[in-house]
Each structure stands twice: as C-alpha cells, then as structure tokens.
Amino acid sequence: TTKIQIRLADGSRLIQRFNSTHRILDVRNFIVQSRPEFAALDFILVTSFPNKELTDESLTLLEADILNTVLLQQ
C-alpha cells in the first residue's frame, strides 16, 4: 500500500492509503466522495515536485510514479 496526501484547492488536506494498483481515477473518485462539493468542479491533480499534471487517469499509481507522495488539486 501507499499513502497519498492530497492538498485540496480550498487549502484543506486529505490523506488516504491506496494500493499501488489503484488508478489515478480512483484518487479523483476518493476526493469527490470525501468532498461532494468538488463533484461539479473541473479539477486536475498535479504532483508537488516536480510539478506534473496527471492527465492520464487510467494509469496506476505505480505507473504514474506517485507512491507515497503529495498531490495538489488545481
């Protein structure tokens, strides 16, 4: 498993454990389930350093190389 910290656009944080085989789409779905107010918003996930937009949501967390990292919601 891996721990992902997500810094949300409103300044708050979410921390969740995922399997390395989960997909970026699963992280997006977790955000929307945790904070339904973001469901209607068009947002992207970005790595904190170096900044990289995670546009291919079909990638696993392992394939995207974002295990144990911080993601930013923009």
Score class of each variant (00 low, 15 high):
61 L>Q: 00
20 S>V: 15
26 D>T: 01
63 E>G: 05
10 D>K: 02
49 F>E: 14
18 F>H: 00
36 P>F: 05
8 L>R: 00
47 T>C: 07
10 D>Q: 03
23 R>L: 00
50 P>Q: 12
9 A>D: 00
34 S>D: 00
3 K>Y: 14
63 E>I: 06
35 R>N: 04
14 L>R: 05
72 L>G: 01
62 L>F: 12
16 Q>M: 04
31 I>M: 00
63 E>H: 11
48 S>I: 05
10 D>P: 07
42 D>R: 01
64 A>P: 03
15 I>Q: 06
9 A>C: 15
2 T>H: 10
67 L>N: 14
70 V>S: 13
17 R>I: 11
57 E>F: 00
32 V>D: 02
59 L>E: 13
71 L>S: 13
58 S>R: 07
67 L>D: 15
70 V>G: 15
45 L>A: 03
18 F>Q: 01
36 P>V: 06
35 R>F: 13
63 E>R: 05
58 S>D: 07
71 L>F: 14
63 E>D: 05
68 N>Y: 07
8 L>A: 04
46 V>C: 14
13 R>Y: 13
48 S>Y: 08
51 N>K: 14
45 L>D: 05
59 L>M: 14
37 E>D: 10
33 Q>I: 08
31 I>S: 01
3 K>P: 02
45 L>C: 09
65 D>C: 11
13 R>G: 09
45 L>Q: 02
34 S>F: 06
49 F>L: 09
20 S>N: 11
50 P>S: 13
22 H>D: 15
57 E>L: 02
52 K>D: 01
12 S>P: 03
32 V>F: 01
66 I>W: 14
70 V>C: 14
11 G>M: 11
22 H>W: 12
14 L>Y: 07
7 R>K: 15
72 L>N: 08
18 F>D: 01
68 N>C: 04
32 V>H: 02
13 R>L: 13
4 I>T: 03
68 N>E: 08
36 P>R: 09
28 R>F: 04
26 D>A: 00
68 N>S: 10
26 D>F: 02
33 Q>W: 02
65 D>P: 07
59 L>S: 01
60 T>S: 09
23 R>K: 15
41 L>M: 13
29 N>L: 08
17 R>F: 07
44 I>W: 00
46 V>D: 00
65 D>M: 01
20 S>T: 15
39 A>P: 03
10 D>W: 04
55 T>K: 13
28 R>Q: 09
42 D>H: 04
16 Q>E: 04
52 K>T: 06
15 I>G: 01
24 I>F: 04
23 R>V: 02
66 I>K: 11
62 L>V: 12
61 L>I: 08
37 E>H: 09
30 F>C: 01
18 F>W: 05
70 V>P: 15
25 L>K: 15
72 L>C: 12
36 P>S: 02
67 L>W: 10
72 L>E: 03
57 E>R: 02
4 I>V: 09
24 I>K: 05
1 T>M: 06
7 R>W: 05
63 E>N: 09
15 I>C: 12
69 T>G: 15
36 P>M: 05
46 V>G: 02
62 L>N: 05
73 Q>W: 03
40 A>G: 13
33 Q>P: 00
31 I>H: 04
37 E>S: 08
26 D>V: 01
33 Q>M: 08
44 I>G: 00
13 R>N: 06
29 N>S: 13
20 S>P: 14
67 L>R: 13
22 H>S: 15
67 L>E: 13
51 N>Y: 15
22 H>R: 08
72 L>M: 09
58 S>G: 08
73 Q>R: 03
73 Q>F: 12
58 S>Q: 00
21 T>E: 10
17 R>D: 14
52 K>Y: 07
44 I>R: 12
15 I>Y: 13
7 R>Q: 15
31 I>G: 06
5 Q>R: 07
62 L>I: 11
20 S>F: 08
7 R>C: 08
57 E>W: 06
36 P>W: 01
59 L>R: 02
57 E>T: 10
46 V>L: 12
58 S>H: 12
56 D>E: 01
27 V>K: 07
55 T>G: 10
26 D>Q: 06
4 I>P: 00
11 G>P: 04
